[in-house]
């Protein structure tokens, strides 16, 4: 949101004085404790999931990640289907969301008249404020019928017959499924990615841009050859931030993905994601292994988003540091 803040001149650090009076020491310990709570929250969440998922990992071993069977009747669980659904919907969201976000960021920083930059940027950021369950309701009641009536039949007719790609667009136009989820997720992450991009585009040194213009570059060439290369670490960081969001999104996906354990080539087909599986099944997993398997799925989601978000953070910090120097 405001990565630029990180570039503010760092205040000189004044360590707590050992000789300080009692009040200072107490205050120091209180704030330190609160800081540690934040750390503890993450560790405790990870630990509780590791603990809960242990018996699933022990029972199924590595097969838990590679197997496709999710059979509560037989008590056999493997997580590939929800993992696949999570990855495919997130990938779709990125394929759609990243170019659109880039376009929005470029439009706001380079194209739009100064007067409408603020309002347009603010409006796009509003998308981030809409609760995810509203995305879900809109997705199910308005967008899914729209997809099944207008978009999917066209895709099936036009792209379906093409070899290879056609397989992605075959099947019945249900309106609910991977593609719809991917689009809804894309809309949800656009504000996050585009606002990071916009913020970093704004701080590209004007000298660089102006010298490129002086050499006769067009506006798009300046964006392509100067702005994006100059900010690429942060741009990738912003993309990862969006990816982290997409991976863990629950409610919207639960409404429109179809909640079925099924790996299909076609993007029209329903599937399930880790988060949707948890929302649907966690409260009703009646035996321990079932619950443990769900918790193990939660842990996988946690680890993957942690890695993605950590990567995003590292890249954004590196960018901030570059600018600070």
């Amino acid at each position: 949101m405001s990565e630029a803040l990180a570039t503010m001149p760092a205040a000189t650090s004044t360590p707590p004085r050992r000789t300080g009076i009692l009040g200072d020491r107490i205050f120091f310990w209180i704030v330190t404790a609160c800081g540690l709570i934040v750390l503890a929250a993450l560790l405790a969440a990870a630990a509780s999931m590791l603990w809960g998922g242990l018996s699933a990992f022990r029972t199924f071993g590595f097969g838990f990640i590679t197997g496709t069977e999710w059979d509560p009747v037989a008590g056999h669980f493997a997580g590939l289907v929800p993992i696949y659904g999570t990855l495919v919907t997130s990938a779709l969201a990125m394929i759609i969301g990243v170019p659109v976000s880039l376009g929005i960021a470029v439009f706001i920083t380079e194209v739009a008249p100064r007067a409408i930059r603020g309002p347009v940027g603010g409006a796009i950021e509003l998308l981030a404020g809409i609760p995810s369950i509203i995305y879900g309701m809109w997705g199910l009641f308005t967008f899914a019928p729209f997809m099944s009536d207008y978009v999917q039949p066209i895709l099936i007719d036009w792209l379906g017959p093409i070899p290879l790609i056609g397989a992605l667009f075959s099947g019945a136009p249900l309106g609910i499924g991977m593609l719809t989820s991917g689009i809804v997720l894309a809309v949800m992450i656009i504000p996050f990615i585009s606002s990071v991009m916009r913020d970093v585009f704004l701080v590209v040194p004007p000298q660089l841009k102006e010298s490129a213009y002086a050499l006769g570059s067009t506006k798009w060439e300046v964006v392509r050859d100067i702005v994006i290369p100059h900010t690429r670490t942060a741009v990738v960081g912003g993309i990862f931030l969006g990816l982290g969001r997409a991976l863990g999104e629950t409610m919207a996906v639960t409404f429109v993905l179809g909640n079925t354990h099924n790996i299909a080539i076609s993007l029209m087909e329903p599937g399930t994601s880790i988060a949707a599986t948890l929302a649907n099944e966690f409260a009703e997993a009646s035996d321990d292994l079932y619950r443990s398997s769900l918790t193990a799925l939660g842990l996988i989601l946690f680890v993957v988003t942690f890695i993605v978000l950590a990567a995003a953070k590292v890249m954004l910090v590196r960018m901030a540091r570059q600018r600070g120097e």
Binding site: V38, L42, A45, L241, T295, L301, F302, T305
Partner: peptide, 29 residues
């Protein structure tokens, strides 16, 4: 109280991750 310290950096890092962590995980926890 933690400028330039490892602990502060770690907590800030962790906090930013919690900021975008999947909220369903919080429910499980």
């Amino acid at each position: 109280f933690s400028r330039g310290k490892k602990l502060g950096e770690t907590i800030r890092f962790v906090n930013d991750i919690l900021l975008s962590a999947p909220s369903i995980i919080i429910g499980l926890f």
